[in-house]
């Protein structure tokens, strides 16, 4: 039995006192990959934001390696090795690509930045070519690469990845998922949010299906693929 790295226990969270998520429980084992599947606007992003303490928890608890992170400041959660790779355009558009990447290693010792940069440039040679450019000049796919690369700079062990395929051309999506598969192979712990189950079915150990802020189904991804009725009801086929 693998050890539990991240545990969400009866979580209720939302904005301005209005809950978006109600009573969610999940856990991610060390080195495991767990997917959160569901249509847009049903609280998947809110869940990740709650885990990284960007929004306050209204009820329940979140534990990292057994210790509660309720009320802990967002930057402290990062210190504990959580890397949140946000959806879409949450990059620093008025900084260069290089500075975006070094910001990713904000908490790392200065001596490590060089080698980590090299590592990221190996995975995404495109970022090396564009390192002097303002991030605002990047294309959608490059921005996603930058967000992922910036997350890799921190060398955290628990990765929260928010909709990496959203709005990208299929070929870029494949490339990004190759990287995520490698991360899993490296032994990192992954919690990934995705709209499309088929993207993660081959590497996720377990998936939760979210609908209107609640988990309506959970189990092995293959099993979910066989439940045509569920797929049709919640994900439109």
């Amino acid at each position: 039995m693998a050890t539990t790295r991240l545990e969400v226990d009866g979580l209720t969270a939302g904005y301005h006192g209005q809950p978006v998520l109600r009573d969610l429980s999940l856990h991610v084992n060390d080195g495991g990959a767990v997917g959160i599947i569901g249509p847009n606007g049903h609280g998947k992003t809110t869940l990740l934001r709650a885990i990284s303490s960007l929004i306050p928890i209204m009820g329940g608890d979140i534990r990292l390696d057994g210790a509660s992170i309720k009320g802990v400041r967002a930057d402290r959660v990062v210190q504990q090795g959580v890397v949140h790779i946000p959806q879409g355009d949450l990059i620093f558009t008025e900084l260069t690509v290089l500075k975006n990447l070094t910001m990713g290693a904000y908490l790392a010792p200065k001596s490590e930045i060089g080698s980590r940069l090299k590592g990221v440039f190996e995975i995404f040679p495109r970022l090396e070519e564009r390192q002097g450019q303002m991030a605002s000049t990047l294309s959608g796919g490059e921005r996603r690469m930058l967000a992922l690369g910036r997350g890799l700079m921190s060398a955290g062990r628990i990765m929260l990845i928010d909709e990496p395929s959203l709005g990208l051309a299929p070929i870029v999506v494949d490339q990004i998922y190759d990287v995520i598969r490698d991360l899993k192979a490296e032994g990192r712990t992954i919690l990934i949010v995705e709209e499309n189950i088929s993207r993660i079915v081959d590497f996720a150990d377990y998936v939760y299906l979210v609908d209107h802020g609640e988990f309506v189904w959970e189990g092995e991804p293959d099993e979910l693929m066989r439940h045509e009725k569920i797929l049709e009801t919640y994900l439109g086929g």
Binding site: S52, L54, R73, A74, D75, V78, Q79, V83, H84, P86, L90, I91, F92, T93, E94, L95, K99, T102, M103, G104, Y106, L107, R150, S154
Partner: peptide, 21 residues
């Protein structure tokens, strides 16, 4: 200084890098 610029551009993203806002 870079952290100041980062916070100015996107407070949430900066926090996710571990910047104490």
């Amino acid at each position: 200084g870079t952290a100041i610029l980062a916070v100015a551009q996107d407070r949430d993203a900066a926090q996710l890098m571990g910047v104490p806002v």
